[in-house]
Simulated assay, not measured.
Amino acid sequence: RGFAPNGAANWSAGFLPASNQGTMIRPNSKTPISNLFPPENDFVTRNSDRDVLQALKQLNQQHQQTRAGDSRLNARIQSYELAAKMQLQAPEVLDLSGETKSTLQRYGLDFVDFEVQEGISEAAEIAYFGRNCLVARRMLEQGVRFVQIWSGADNGHPRRNWDSHEDIKRDHWPLGRGMSIGASALIKDLKQRGMLDDTIILWTTEFGRMPCSQGSKGRDHNPFVFTNWLAGGGIKGGTTYGESDQWSFKPADPANPTMCYDVHATILHQLGIDHEKLTYRHNGIDRRLTDVHGHVIENILS
């Protein structure tokens, strides 16, 4: 439905080496992975492709010798090597033709009972997010260790997303249907296949919406409280933690709020990592993924 707000920075490597950044895949596009295969022509052959890659490797090595400490070129080399592997495996992962009819139905890929709300097809939104979730499951099956699924951006309508300042019902209704169907299908599918016990699912956002209206039908940003949820990977189901006030405006206990750092520390704990000990040296500083904050939320662990 469009590029995520803030673009590729959302899956950048931050202070880690550039090779740790994510690779964008568009399961709903005719070319889910850009430039994975060359365009149709009569002059690119296997031999010429091999020769070009060999020449490129030599040029990259020469370039890297004069730029010690710059991780970007090494990241690009690794990306090309990854692309070569993806040419063999990615088409199979992205091909949903082998999925059963019941699985496709569960993810909403054959949804036909819908209504169009001011140009937004609810069925299209359900199928869009459902396909992303199904491809995510197939990637996890192939050993991909981290998958990020996006919802919300729309190039045609900049405000037709979760950041709805104008009309909450118009914007959130189709997004909410797609999200609920796709996310629930992913959880059920992982559980059915015995993958949920060692897969952590985190649903989150960057901020909430105010409890009061903006204008007539919209809502402004709420940076004080918002909802996220966790499932699988040793997380205790049916548990809530981190109470807001009665208006869902600010934390019930402002002196002891639950922070994003706490969620990150908890996920790292479930992965067997002590967030206070894991550091990466960057610009002369030992960086932690939770900065100098974060506590494991023991109450939500099974």
Rank of each mutant, 00 (worst) to 15 (best):
R287D: 04
V225N: 00
Q78T: 10
D49R: 12
Q270A: 02
V263P: 00
N20K: 11
W11Q: 07
I168N: 04
D291W: 12
G152A: 04
Q21K: 14
D286M: 09
N222W: 01
G208T: 03
V296C: 01
P257R: 00
Y128F: 13
Y280T: 05
S12Q: 09
R46M: 12
T103P: 00
D167Y: 02
F226W: 15
K101V: 11
Q148C: 12
G69C: 06
A231G: 02
C133N: 08
I201N: 04
I235A: 02
N60C: 10
G182V: 01
R26A: 15
S164H: 01
H293V: 05
A153I: 05
A255C: 10
S121K: 07
Q89S: 13
D262R: 02
S19T: 11
L140I: 11
E81W: 07
Q117C: 11
K169F: 15
K250E: 12
A123T: 04
T279F: 06
T266D: 06
T205M: 11
L190M: 09
L109A: 07
L53V: 11
A75W: 03
R281Q: 12
D95Q: 03
V147M: 03
P32I: 06
D167L: 08
L109T: 00
Q65I: 14
E115A: 13
H63I: 15
N20D: 13
T290A: 01
L271R: 04
A4N: 11
T290P: 03
M24D: 08
A127E: 08
A13G: 08
Q214S: 13
N299R: 09
D171W: 05
H264W: 11
Y241F: 09
G178C: 04
A124K: 13
G152N: 02
S29W: 11
T258H: 06
V144Q: 09
R209N: 08
K57A: 12
G143Y: 07
D171Y: 05
E276Y: 10
M139T: 04
V93G: 01
T100V: 06
E206M: 07
V52G: 08
A185L: 04
P251V: 06
L175V: 07
A83R: 14
E122Y: 09
R50P: 00
G272S: 04
F226L: 10
I25Y: 00
V116F: 07
L140F: 03
I201M: 08
K85Q: 15
V225M: 03
K169L: 15
G218C: 02
T199L: 03
T227I: 09
Q192N: 11
D51K: 14
H293D: 13
S34A: 15
A4S: 12
L134G: 04
D220F: 05
S79V: 09
T266R: 00
I181W: 03
G194D: 06
Q21L: 10
R46Y: 09
W229R: 00
E125M: 14
W247Y: 12
N6Q: 14
G284F: 00
I25K: 01
K57E: 15
S151G: 11
S151E: 09
V135H: 03
I235N: 01
G178K: 03
P91D: 06
A68F: 10
L268A: 01
G98A: 00
K250R: 14
G152K: 00
Q270G: 03
D198I: 05
S213Y: 14
M139K: 03
K236Y: 04
D95P: 04
R131G: 01
S244T: 15
S102E: 15
